[in-house]
Design a protein around this nucleic acid. Structure first.
Lengths: 143, 143
DNA sequence: CTCCGTGCAAAGCGTTTGCACGGCG
DNA sequence: CGCCGTGCAAACGCTTTGCACGGAG
Protein backbone atom coordinates (compact mmCIF):
# COMPACT_ATOMS: atom_id res chain seq x y z
CA UNK A 1 0.00 0.00 0.00
CA UNK A 2 1.25 3.47 -0.85
CA UNK A 3 -0.20 6.97 -1.06
CA UNK A 4 -1.31 6.60 -4.68
CA UNK A 5 -3.11 3.35 -4.02
CA UNK A 6 -4.84 4.88 -1.05
CA UNK A 7 -5.90 7.94 -3.02
CA UNK A 8 -7.31 5.89 -5.86
CA UNK A 9 -9.15 3.78 -3.31
CA UNK A 10 -10.71 6.99 -2.03
CA UNK A 11 -11.70 7.99 -5.54
CA UNK A 12 -13.27 4.59 -6.22
CA UNK A 13 -15.50 4.87 -3.20
CA UNK A 14 -16.60 8.38 -4.13
CA UNK A 15 -14.65 10.26 -1.48
CA UNK A 16 -13.12 13.57 -2.48
CA UNK A 17 -9.48 14.34 -2.91
CA UNK A 18 -8.20 17.12 -0.69
CA UNK A 19 -4.76 18.42 0.13
CA UNK A 20 -5.24 17.54 3.77
CA UNK A 21 -6.12 13.95 3.03
CA UNK A 22 -3.11 13.60 0.81
CA UNK A 23 -0.83 15.07 3.43
CA UNK A 24 -2.18 12.91 6.23
CA UNK A 25 -1.48 9.89 4.06
CA UNK A 26 2.01 11.03 3.16
CA UNK A 27 2.87 11.59 6.80
CA UNK A 28 1.99 7.96 7.50
CA UNK A 29 3.71 6.76 4.35
CA UNK A 30 6.92 8.49 5.36
CA UNK A 31 6.86 7.67 9.05
CA UNK A 32 5.73 4.04 8.93
CA UNK A 33 5.16 3.99 12.67
CA UNK A 34 2.32 4.46 15.14
CA UNK A 35 1.18 8.06 15.45
CA UNK A 36 -1.44 9.63 17.68
CA UNK A 37 -4.03 12.10 16.46
CA UNK A 38 -1.95 14.80 18.11
CA UNK A 39 1.16 13.75 16.17
CA UNK A 40 -0.77 13.97 12.93
CA UNK A 41 -2.22 17.34 13.82
CA UNK A 42 1.24 18.75 14.60
CA UNK A 43 2.62 17.44 11.33
CA UNK A 44 -0.19 18.99 9.32
CA UNK A 45 -0.05 22.35 11.07
CA UNK A 46 3.08 23.28 9.14
CA UNK A 47 1.18 23.49 5.88
CA UNK A 48 -2.31 23.94 7.30
CA UNK A 49 -2.09 26.21 10.34
CA UNK A 50 -5.88 26.21 10.79
CA UNK A 51 -6.46 22.48 10.57
CA UNK A 52 -8.59 21.17 13.41
CA UNK A 53 -8.70 17.99 15.41
CA UNK A 54 -12.09 17.15 13.95
CA UNK A 55 -10.69 16.87 10.48
CA UNK A 56 -7.84 14.73 11.67
CA UNK A 57 -10.11 12.41 13.62
CA UNK A 58 -12.68 12.18 10.85
CA UNK A 59 -10.05 11.26 8.30
CA UNK A 60 -8.26 8.83 10.57
CA UNK A 61 -11.57 7.02 11.17
CA UNK A 62 -12.26 6.99 7.46
CA UNK A 63 -8.84 5.54 6.69
CA UNK A 64 -9.25 2.97 9.40
CA UNK A 65 -12.59 1.92 7.95
CA UNK A 66 -11.03 1.62 4.50
CA UNK A 67 -8.19 -0.44 5.95
CA UNK A 68 -5.60 2.06 4.81
CA UNK A 69 -4.46 2.47 8.40
CA UNK A 70 -4.03 0.00 11.25
CA UNK A 71 -5.11 1.04 14.73
CA UNK A 72 -4.14 0.12 18.24
CA UNK A 73 -4.88 1.54 21.63
CA UNK A 74 -1.87 2.40 23.72
CA UNK A 75 -1.73 4.20 27.06
CA UNK A 76 -5.29 5.42 26.73
CA UNK A 77 -5.11 6.80 23.22
CA UNK A 78 -5.59 5.49 19.73
CA UNK A 79 -2.51 5.19 17.56
CA UNK A 80 -2.55 4.73 13.82
CA UNK A 81 -0.01 3.44 11.34
CA UNK A 82 0.09 2.79 7.63
CA UNK A 83 -1.18 -0.67 6.81
CA UNK A 84 1.86 -2.97 6.67
CA UNK A 85 0.14 -5.67 4.73
CA UNK A 86 -3.47 -6.28 3.86
CA UNK A 87 -2.81 -9.90 3.09
CA UNK A 88 -0.47 -11.28 5.70
CA UNK A 89 -1.50 -11.47 9.32
CA UNK A 90 1.15 -10.07 11.61
CA UNK A 91 1.94 -8.52 14.98
CA UNK A 92 4.33 -5.84 16.17
CA UNK A 93 7.07 -4.90 18.52
CA UNK A 94 6.24 -1.28 19.35
CA UNK A 95 8.55 1.43 20.66
CA UNK A 96 6.76 3.15 23.53
CA UNK A 97 8.73 6.29 22.88
CA UNK A 98 8.56 7.00 19.16
CA UNK A 99 6.01 4.45 17.97
CA UNK A 100 8.41 2.70 15.62
CA UNK A 101 7.55 -0.93 14.97
CA UNK A 102 9.07 -4.22 13.94
CA UNK A 103 6.92 -6.88 12.39
CA UNK A 104 6.52 -10.29 13.90
CA UNK A 105 5.12 -12.82 11.52
CA UNK A 106 4.57 -15.55 14.06
CA UNK A 107 1.11 -15.53 15.59
CA UNK A 108 0.47 -17.08 19.01
CA UNK A 109 -2.97 -18.22 17.88
CA UNK A 110 -1.31 -20.79 15.64
CA UNK A 111 0.39 -22.37 18.61
CA UNK A 112 -2.51 -22.57 20.99
CA UNK A 113 -4.03 -25.96 21.55
CA UNK A 114 -7.57 -25.97 20.27
CA UNK A 115 -8.79 -27.12 23.66
CA UNK A 116 -7.77 -23.78 25.14
CA UNK A 117 -10.36 -21.83 23.25
CA UNK A 118 -13.00 -24.43 22.54
CA UNK A 119 -15.68 -23.05 24.85
CA UNK A 120 -15.28 -19.46 23.81
CA UNK A 121 -16.50 -18.09 20.51
CA UNK A 122 -13.30 -16.27 19.59
CA UNK A 123 -13.63 -13.02 17.63
CA UNK A 124 -10.19 -11.49 17.83
CA UNK A 125 -6.90 -11.24 19.63
CA UNK A 126 -4.14 -8.81 20.41
CA UNK A 127 -0.46 -9.58 20.70
CA UNK A 128 1.94 -6.70 21.05
CA UNK A 129 5.42 -6.44 22.50
CA UNK A 130 6.43 -3.14 24.04
CA UNK A 131 9.83 -1.65 24.58
CA UNK A 132 12.30 0.83 23.19
CA UNK A 133 13.88 0.82 19.78
CA UNK A 134 17.67 1.10 19.45
CA UNK A 135 17.56 4.88 18.89
CA UNK A 136 15.22 5.61 21.78
CA UNK A 137 16.93 3.30 24.25
CA UNK A 138 20.34 4.85 23.58
CA UNK A 139 18.79 8.29 23.99
CA UNK A 140 17.41 7.14 27.34
CA UNK A 141 20.88 6.06 28.50
CA UNK A 142 22.30 9.49 27.79
CA UNK A 143 19.47 11.25 29.64
CA UNK B 1 -5.19 -14.13 46.99
CA UNK B 2 -8.46 -13.63 48.84
CA UNK B 3 -10.20 -10.77 50.61
CA UNK B 4 -8.54 -11.44 53.97
CA UNK B 5 -5.06 -11.48 52.47
CA UNK B 6 -5.79 -8.25 50.65
CA UNK B 7 -7.09 -6.58 53.78
CA UNK B 8 -4.10 -7.60 55.86
CA UNK B 9 -1.87 -6.33 53.09
CA UNK B 10 -3.65 -2.99 53.42
CA UNK B 11 -3.12 -3.00 57.17
CA UNK B 12 0.56 -3.80 56.78
CA UNK B 13 1.11 -0.82 54.56
CA UNK B 14 -0.71 1.50 56.90
CA UNK B 15 -3.88 1.95 54.88
CA UNK B 16 -7.15 2.11 56.72
CA UNK B 17 -9.87 -0.45 56.78
CA UNK B 18 -13.24 0.79 55.56
CA UNK B 19 -16.48 -0.87 54.67
CA UNK B 20 -16.23 0.36 51.12
CA UNK B 21 -12.79 -1.09 50.60
CA UNK B 22 -13.90 -4.42 51.95
CA UNK B 23 -16.93 -4.45 49.70
CA UNK B 24 -15.00 -3.48 46.58
CA UNK B 25 -12.69 -6.38 47.29
CA UNK B 26 -15.51 -8.82 47.89
CA UNK B 27 -17.16 -7.85 44.63
CA UNK B 28 -13.98 -8.77 42.80
CA UNK B 29 -13.48 -11.90 44.89
CA UNK B 30 -16.95 -13.13 44.02
CA UNK B 31 -17.01 -12.14 40.37
CA UNK B 32 -13.52 -13.18 39.32
CA UNK B 33 -13.86 -11.37 36.02
CA UNK B 34 -12.97 -8.02 34.48
CA UNK B 35 -15.11 -5.17 35.76
CA UNK B 36 -15.16 -1.51 34.79
CA UNK B 37 -15.26 1.31 37.31
CA UNK B 38 -18.92 1.71 36.45
CA UNK B 39 -19.62 -1.96 37.23
CA UNK B 40 -17.98 -1.55 40.62
CA UNK B 41 -19.89 1.64 41.33
CA UNK B 42 -23.21 -0.03 40.53
CA UNK B 43 -22.39 -2.98 42.74
CA UNK B 44 -21.49 -0.75 45.67
CA UNK B 45 -24.50 1.51 45.33
CA UNK B 46 -26.74 -1.14 46.86
CA UNK B 47 -25.12 -0.78 50.25
CA UNK B 48 -23.63 2.68 49.78
CA UNK B 49 -26.09 4.81 47.82
CA UNK B 50 -23.90 7.90 48.11
CA UNK B 51 -20.62 6.35 46.99
CA UNK B 52 -18.91 8.38 44.31
CA UNK B 53 -16.78 7.57 41.30
CA UNK B 54 -13.78 9.23 42.95
CA UNK B 55 -13.74 6.72 45.74
CA UNK B 56 -14.05 3.84 43.34
CA UNK B 57 -11.25 5.11 41.11
CA UNK B 58 -8.98 5.96 44.02
CA UNK B 59 -9.37 2.51 45.51
CA UNK B 60 -9.01 0.72 42.21
CA UNK B 61 -5.75 2.56 41.60
CA UNK B 62 -4.58 1.71 45.08
CA UNK B 63 -5.38 -1.97 44.62
CA UNK B 64 -3.68 -1.97 41.26
CA UNK B 65 -0.56 -0.47 42.78
CA UNK B 66 -0.61 -3.10 45.51
CA UNK B 67 -1.04 -5.83 42.90
CA UNK B 68 -4.29 -6.96 44.41
CA UNK B 69 -6.01 -6.30 41.09
CA UNK B 70 -4.92 -6.87 37.50
CA UNK B 71 -5.75 -4.21 34.93
CA UNK B 72 -6.29 -4.14 31.22
CA UNK B 73 -7.58 -1.57 28.81
CA UNK B 74 -10.50 -2.66 26.68
CA UNK B 75 -12.57 -0.58 24.29
CA UNK B 76 -11.32 2.68 25.71
CA UNK B 77 -11.82 1.93 29.38
CA UNK B 78 -9.84 0.33 32.15
CA UNK B 79 -11.06 -3.02 33.44
CA UNK B 80 -9.97 -4.61 36.67
CA UNK B 81 -10.05 -8.13 38.00
CA UNK B 82 -8.86 -9.94 41.08
CA UNK B 83 -5.27 -11.05 40.75
CA UNK B 84 -5.33 -14.65 39.45
CA UNK B 85 -1.83 -15.45 40.50
CA UNK B 86 1.01 -13.33 41.73
CA UNK B 87 3.52 -16.02 40.95
CA UNK B 88 2.66 -17.58 37.64
CA UNK B 89 2.73 -15.54 34.47
CA UNK B 90 -0.42 -15.98 32.43
CA UNK B 91 -2.74 -14.52 29.79
CA UNK B 92 -6.48 -14.52 29.27
CA UNK B 93 -9.34 -15.24 26.98
CA UNK B 94 -11.77 -12.41 27.75
CA UNK B 95 -15.51 -12.29 27.13
CA UNK B 96 -16.27 -8.95 25.53
CA UNK B 97 -19.76 -9.04 26.93
CA UNK B 98 -19.50 -9.98 30.60
CA UNK B 99 -15.74 -9.79 31.21
CA UNK B 100 -15.43 -13.43 32.22
CA UNK B 101 -11.99 -14.89 31.61
CA UNK B 102 -10.22 -18.16 31.03
CA UNK B 103 -6.56 -18.46 31.84
CA UNK B 104 -3.99 -19.37 29.25
CA UNK B 105 -0.73 -20.49 30.72
CA UNK B 106 1.21 -20.56 27.50
CA UNK B 107 3.03 -17.32 26.77
CA UNK B 108 3.96 -16.36 23.21
CA UNK B 109 7.16 -14.74 24.47
CA UNK B 110 8.53 -18.19 25.20
CA UNK B 111 8.13 -19.23 21.60
CA UNK B 112 9.62 -16.21 19.92
CA UNK B 113 13.03 -16.59 18.41
CA UNK B 114 15.47 -14.36 20.22
CA UNK B 115 16.45 -12.74 16.96
CA UNK B 116 12.98 -11.23 16.68
CA UNK B 117 13.45 -8.95 19.63
CA UNK B 118 17.19 -8.55 19.79
CA UNK B 119 17.35 -4.91 18.73
CA UNK B 120 14.53 -3.73 20.94
CA UNK B 121 14.84 -3.32 24.67
CA UNK B 122 11.67 -5.17 25.60
CA UNK B 123 9.77 -3.98 28.65
CA UNK B 124 6.44 -5.74 28.37
CA UNK B 125 3.89 -7.45 26.23
CA UNK B 126 0.17 -7.99 25.90
CA UNK B 127 -1.55 -11.10 24.68
CA UNK B 128 -5.30 -11.30 24.97
CA UNK B 129 -7.91 -13.30 23.11
CA UNK B 130 -11.36 -11.77 22.76
CA UNK B 131 -14.68 -13.40 22.19
CA UNK B 132 -17.84 -14.52 23.93
CA UNK B 133 -18.13 -17.03 26.70
CA UNK B 134 -20.64 -19.89 26.39
CA UNK B 135 -23.35 -18.05 28.35
CA UNK B 136 -23.01 -14.79 26.44
CA UNK B 137 -22.78 -16.36 22.99
CA UNK B 138 -25.93 -18.41 23.53
CA UNK B 139 -27.68 -15.27 24.77
CA UNK B 140 -26.60 -13.54 21.56
CA UNK B 141 -28.14 -16.29 19.44
CA UNK B 142 -31.49 -15.86 21.15
CA UNK B 143 -31.46 -12.10 20.61
C1' DC C 1 -6.33 13.92 68.23
C1' DT C 2 -4.37 13.20 63.77
C1' DC C 3 -4.41 11.89 59.32
C1' DC C 4 -6.53 9.20 55.77
C1' DG C 5 -10.64 8.31 53.19
C1' DT C 6 -14.54 10.33 51.30
C1' DG C 7 -18.13 13.20 48.72
C1' DC C 8 -18.69 17.15 46.07
C1' DA C 9 -17.56 19.77 42.29
C1' DA C 10 -14.84 21.03 38.74
C1' DA C 11 -11.38 20.23 35.50
C1' DG C 12 -8.71 17.26 32.40
C1' DC C 13 -7.93 14.56 28.29
C1' DG C 14 -8.95 12.22 24.06
C1' DT C 15 -12.67 11.88 21.12
C1' DT C 16 -17.27 12.77 18.82
C1' DT C 17 -21.06 15.48 17.01
C1' DG C 18 -24.33 19.53 15.19
C1' DC C 19 -24.06 23.31 12.45
C1' DA C 20 -23.13 26.39 8.65
C1' DC C 21 -19.98 27.59 5.07
C1' DG C 22 -16.83 26.89 1.30
C1' DG C 23 -14.59 24.22 -2.14
C1' DC C 24 -14.19 19.71 -4.94
C1' DG C 25 -16.20 17.27 -8.72
C1' DC D 1 -24.33 23.79 -8.52
C1' DG D 2 -24.90 19.91 -5.30
C1' DC D 3 -22.88 17.66 -1.84
C1' DC D 4 -18.83 16.39 0.84
C1' DG D 5 -15.16 18.13 3.72
C1' DT D 6 -14.02 21.44 6.96
C1' DG D 7 -13.59 24.69 11.07
C1' DC D 8 -15.85 26.15 15.04
C1' DA D 9 -17.83 25.17 19.26
C1' DA D 10 -19.94 22.42 22.29
C1' DA D 11 -20.70 18.01 24.26
C1' DC D 12 -19.25 13.48 25.44
C1' DG D 13 -17.26 9.51 28.39
C1' DC D 14 -13.86 8.17 31.36
C1' DT D 15 -10.68 9.61 34.68
C1' DT D 16 -8.22 12.80 37.86
C1' DT D 17 -7.73 16.52 41.18
C1' DG D 18 -8.53 20.45 44.95
C1' DC D 19 -11.04 21.16 48.84
C1' DA D 20 -13.20 20.60 53.29
C1' DC D 21 -15.31 17.42 56.38
C1' DG D 22 -15.87 13.15 59.02
C1' DG D 23 -14.41 8.74 60.63
C1' DA D 24 -10.57 5.11 61.50
C1' DG D 25 -6.55 4.32 64.32
Amino acid sequence: MNVEQALSQLKEKGYKFTGKREEILSVFAQEKRYLSAKDVLSALQMNYPNISFDTVYRNLSLFEEMEILEVTELEGEKRFRFQCSTTRHHHHLICLDCGKTKQIHACPMDWLEDSEEEEFQVTGHKFEIYGYCPECSSAAVQA
